[in-house]
């Protein structure tokens, strides 16, 4: 654990709204080892993106980190001066987002945008940046780099724009790449291409990746370790294998069952009822209780702590042992859970 590249401890983030405070992130901790791929999975509003934006100092004006530390290469990102953090962003930590169009400058040639990243971080000189851009374009799978250098973002397909974003993000050889829903807006065919590209780049560089996604299928096919977030809390955290074979949180199981695979019959799908709500006060009971088939009285009264259940696997559910023991007969347990919970 001592050699983690990034270690986030007890992060809290709040937003001030006209009608009060929204508690977006409520004490999450996670770490990323060098070369590791961490998946952060959750629905809209779970706090998965906000967590990362908090660390990167990219919260909107009404958002504020109120507690926590985020150690990266020995420095606490949350206590850096703005200037220092800006230096680090794009150089030591690269970022890509769901919609490349919002991050690319529509009036600037894509080659210039990539060189600009290197020049602004004094990574190399103008000549070096130009040559390296051509190299990067090839590396991310954009053929005819010299011609494409002069193209504008609108001349590219969604998948190609995401490749440009990736080239920008890795231009300064960052140690960590944060990818926030990088494939959500893309066709399934392009999604696989982008995931394969990210993996290839990562393996060449031994770069760490944090992949944020709502799609359990994407996370489990790409990540070494996964944390599931809900209402700004970590619900479950485990290495991939533990996640796949011993999911211990009803919410995780719900997300798993929501993945639409080839051959899935519609009657096999089970929607998680309801939706995630913005918290206007810090959670005092299990935030998922209202949507959980297993919720018992205790779940509505007592906040479950994130606790170890063996094998580097952590879960925040009062009934995790029952979930694990039930295994394939979980539906019976859930049906029973509804009855006993009244």
């Amino acid at each position: 654990m001592a050699e983690d590249l990034l270690s986030v401890q007890d992060l809290h983030t709040e937003f001030e709204r006209g009608d009060g405070t929204v508690y977006a992130v409520n004490g999450i901790s996670f770490s990323v080892a060098p070369g590791e791929t961490l998946g952060i999975v959750g629905e809209s509003g779970s706090g998965k993106s906000v967590s990362v934006l908090s660390i990167m100092g990219l919260l909107r004006g009404n958002g504020q980190v109120t507690e926590g530390t985020a150690k990266f290469m020995g420095k606490d990102l949350l206590r850096l001066r703005r200037r220092q953090l800006e230096d680090m962003r794009g150089r030591d930590i690269g970022m890509i987002f769901q919609d490349p169009m919002t991050s690319l400058n529509p009036t600037m040639r894509i080659g210039d945008q990539i060189t600009e990243v290197m020049l602004s971080h004094q990574y190399t000189n103008r000549k070096g940046a130009f040559n390296r851009t051509l190299q990067l374009l090839e590396e991310v799978g954009i053929p005819e780099g010299k011609a494409r250098f002069r193209s504008y973002p609108h001349e590219f397909s969604g998948g190609m724009r995401q490749r440009v974003m990736i080239a920008m993000a890795i231009a300064c050889e960052p140690q960590l790449l944060i990818a926030d829903e990088p494939t959500t807006a893309l066709d399934v065919t392009v999604q696989t291409q982008i995931l394969a590209l990210l993996r290839e780049l990562q393996q060449k560089r031994r770069m760490s990746i944090i992949l944020i996604t709502h799609d359990f299928g994407v996370a489990t096919n790409f990540c070494d370790r996964i944390i599931v977030m809900y209402a700004g809390k970590v619900m479950e955290s485990a290495p991939l294998d533990g996640f796949l074979r011993r999911s211990a949180h009803p919410y995780t199981i719900g997300l798993k069952r929501s993945v639409i695979e080839v051959g899935t019959q519609s009657h096999q799908l089970k929607a998680i009822p309801g939706m995630a709500m913005a918290l206007t006060e810090p959670p005092r009971a299990c935030p998922f209780a209202g949507r959980c088939d297993l919720a018992a009285r205790r779940c509505r009264e007592e906040l479950p702590e994130l606790r170890a259940i063996g094998g580097d696997h952590y879960v925040a559910c009062h009934r995790a042992e029952e979930v694990l023991a039930a295994g394939a007969t979980l539906d019976n347990l859930m049906a029973g859970g509804v009855v006993s919970a009244g």
């Binding site: 696989t192 995931l195 096919n221 796949l244 074979r245 993945v259 080839v262």
Partner: peptide
């Protein structure tokens, strides 16, 4: 059909990404 990701049964059962 092959581009649709499938949740694997275990880490060992994870197959390479099938890229078109």
């Amino acid at each position: 059909l092959r581009s649709v990701l499938k949740v694997p049964e275990s880490a060992a059962a994870r197959t390479p990404l099938a890229v078109l």
